[in-house]
């Protein structure tokens, strides 16, 4: 039976997904071996079945990210953190290191929406529509929130790296990255 893969981008930039597309014509080889369940690549928004592999790009910066990540954990046998954002927070995590006041989240939102002279915001309000997920107090890595089975560093990991890892995983053999395939940037 074909393995089922699900993918998602949480607090990421979709660069890691672009990198997956960078495996070019090998995507066809991949489709011989796997079937994509929920993923932005086919625009399925919900899981249709339990999956073998979940690839998650981006860390958690809002409550929706946490909810989605937990759903992925429940629905995937092997959960893989893909890219620097998923592994250690990536660029969004900069907010953790600059916000160490009494009320960091408020300070962040006020700087973004109220207190800067570069902002046009006539209502002078911080967006708070029900449809908007609430920001978390700080940015969390995937492993802060759920159990993660593997981590692939890189921003993004190259198509070669992703292909190499997926191929090994599908074939059930250990991954061996070449020197050029392990990157933190």
């Amino acid at each position: 039976m074909k393995k089922r893969i699900a993918t998602v981008s949480l607090a990421g930039c979709f660069g890691c997904h672009m990198s997956l597309l960078d495996i070019d014509e090998r995507l066809l080889d991949l489709l011989q071996q796997v079937e994509f369940d929920r993923t932005p690549l086919n625009d399925l928004k919900r899981f249709t079945r339990h999956c073998d592999i979940g690839l998650v790009e981006g860390g958690c910066c809002n409550e929706e990210n946490v909810y989605t990540l937990q759903e992925f954990r429940r629905n995937c046998d092997v959960l893989i953190a893909v890219g620097q954002c998923a592994v250690m927070g990536g660029l969004p995590v900069m907010r953790n290191a600059i916000m160490h006041s009494e009320d960091p989240l408020r300070e962040c939102l006020e700087t973004a929406y109220l207190n800067s002279d570069k902002i046009y915001n006539p209502s002078n309000r911080i967006p708070s529509d029900e449809a908007l997920p609430l920001l978390l107090d700080k940015v969390y890595t995937l492993a802060d929130v759920v159990k993660v089975d593997y981590q692939i560093p890189g921003c993004p990991p190259s198509g070669e790296t992703l292909w190499n890892i997926l191929e090994a995983l599908l074939a059930g053999r250990p991954v061996e990255l070449t020197y050029e395939q392990l990157r933190y940037d």
């Binding site: 927070g89 995590v93 290191a97 981590q151 560093p153 990255l177 933190y184 940037d185």
Partner: peptide, 22 residues
């Protein structure tokens, strides 16, 4: 970073990220 590569570290999360203010 190069030492991380040489040692094949895929940034495991055994330790917490301290995220200090510096």
């Amino acid at each position: 970073q190069a030492m991380g590569y040489r040692l094949g570290i895929t940034q495991a999360t055994k330790y917490p990220y301290l995220q200090p203010v510096r």
